[in-house]
């Protein structure tokens, strides 16, 4: 499962498109506050307007990712609420993943306000459903909670990868027509962020496998149901 999501396929193009500045630096989120969305200094060159199609794509990207990170934040918050009582040994692990998700969530909130993207209409529903999923699976036990993480992160990681592919293509086409051959800082920062968050999500996926996610019973039923739910939520949040 991890292998099927391997980042290799697009990592080389990402690296080329994003140039050097962030390569190799491991991202430490636990104690940092979100970087504000990239806003170029006044007097920076302004590129020609983005096409409506591109603006639509970026708006959907930010809306669905914000909703996704809201969900992830609340799933871990639900699991944390249960595990801190029932399994104190797992608490630090969940807290670490939760911290990362909180950071992702805040970052996308900042992007949403900067870029004036409408948040998902169903955010109250995502809030309740995600917290419920977190609490529910944690009550079922460690394996079920890890299987939930595995299912969610599989869908989210794959979805980030799809977005990254489109973003990289967008950056390449923008760079091809730019006077100085460079795409806008704004898009490159966004792609860097998406690829960094994708890596974090896949790290959570590995953690879940290491912690016996596959021993959950009924494994297939649990993971496939959650995956289907996530895909439905992604479809909805992109549009509404």
């Amino acid at each position: 499962m991890i292998r099927s999501l391997s980042t290799k396929s697009c990592s080389r193009r990402v690296a080329a498109a994003l140039s050097s500045s962030c390569s190799g630096k491991r991202f430490n989120s636990a104690s940092t506050t979100p970087t504000p969305a990239p806003i170029p200094a006044a007097g920076d060159r302004k590129l020609p307007p983005l096409s409506p199609r591109t603006r639509d794509f970026l708006a959907r990207l930010i809306r669905v990712d914000q909703a996704g990170e809201l969900g992830a934040d609340l799933i871990y918050s639900g699991q944390h609420a249960v595990f801190k009582r029932t399994r104190p040994d797992l608490e630090p692990l969940i807290a670490h993943m939760w911290d990362q998700e909180v950071y992702h969530h805040k970052t996308f909130d900042a992007l949403q306000t900067t870029h004036r993207v409408r948040p998902s209409v169903f955010s109250p529903l995502w809030t309740v459903a995600a917290y419920g999923l977190g609490v529910g699976t944690a009550v079922m036990g460690k394996e079920a909670a890890m299987a939930c993480t595995l299912a969610v992160e599989t869908v989210i990681g794959g979805h980030y990868n799809d977005q990254l592919r489109e973003l990289v293509a967008l950056i390449e086409s923008e760079a091809a027509v730019a006077e100085d051959g460079r795409a806008s800082e704004e898009l490159r920062e966004l792609a860097k962020m998406v690829s960094r968050f994708r890596d974090d999500e896949l790290e959570h996926l590995e953690t879940a496998v290491e912690h016996d996610a596959e021993k959950a019973r009924p494994y297939i039923l649990l993971t496939e149901t959650i995956k289907a739910g996530c895909r439905a939520a992604v479809w909805t949040a992109e549009r509404f």
């Binding site: 307007p49 409506p52 970026l58 870029h115 004036r116 993207v117 806008s184 800082e185």
Partner: peptide, 17 residues
């Protein structure tokens, strides 16, 4: 109303007129 009004607002690109 929902979709045409809420496109991405770029900060490093000119606003479309």
């Amino acid at each position: 109303i929902l979709n045409s009004a809420r496109l991405y607002h770029a900060v490093s690109h000119l606003p479309p007129s």
